[in-house]
Amino acid sequence: MIIHAIVIETLGLHWLLHNTSMTLSIVLLILNIYSIVFFLGDIQALRLTPLRVDDDHLYISFGLGKRMEIPFRDIAEIVEDAHILEQKIPNTTIEFIARDFETVHPDLLLTLKSPIEATLFMGIKKKYNQVAIRVDDPHAFKKIVKERLEKAQRDELI
């Protein structure tokens, strides 16, 4: 829907501004074409870049806008309580949740031992204390994360 709106806006503004200011019309046309390419790239990155679990790290990305690498040794706890998950998410929590028209809550909340840096839109880096995640198969994901977390805790003890 956003892409269709941008295309229609591009055509309308280009036609309207073409009579008034040719250079402004062309500059806005180029910017709008760039925004369409960006949205298409973001959608493809969201679709084709799944959440990845390594032996020691959890790699999460959300399109071109957010990405984070979480070592399992830095995870303090996994929150699965529905009452906590349905509350408002604080500013110290990064969300990896695909939203649509309905209200969506995370499947689990990873509380970190210390703040971990995430890369946001345009390379901006910010540290977060918690990570809210929503996945397609929450039971399988929780099982994998718990196994890797237990393995990381065993490795720390050794």
Rank of each mutant, 00 (worst) to 15 (best):
I3H: 00
I6W: 04
I6D: 02
V7S: 10
E9H: 10
E9T: 14
L11H: 08
L13I: 13
L13Q: 09
W15H: 08
L16Y: 13
L17Q: 08
L17H: 04
H18S: 15
N19Q: 13
T20Y: 06
S21E: 03
L24Q: 07
S25H: 03
I26F: 11
V27G: 02
L29G: 09
L29R: 07
I30R: 06
I30L: 15
L31E: 07
F38H: 08
F38G: 02
F39Y: 11
L40M: 14
L40I: 12
G41E: 05
I43D: 05
I43R: 14
Q44P: 00
Q44A: 11
L48G: 00
T49C: 05
L51P: 03
V53F: 11
D54L: 09
H57W: 11
L58R: 01
I60D: 02
F62I: 00
F62C: 07
G63K: 03
R67T: 08
E69V: 14
E69Q: 12
E77Y: 04
E77L: 11
E77D: 14
I89G: 02
P90I: 04
P90G: 01
N91I: 02
T92Q: 12
T92N: 15
E95H: 01
I97S: 03
A98L: 08
A98Q: 10
D100S: 13
F101K: 12
P106R: 01
P106N: 06
L110P: 05
T111P: 00
E117R: 11
A118N: 03
T119L: 08
T119G: 04
M122I: 09
G123N: 09
I124H: 14
K126N: 12
K126H: 10
K127G: 00
Y128D: 03
Q130H: 10
V131G: 02
I133H: 00
I133M: 02
I133R: 01
I133E: 06
R134W: 02
H139S: 15
A140Y: 06
F141G: 05
I144G: 07
V145M: 08
R148F: 08
E156P: 02
I158G: 11
I158H: 13
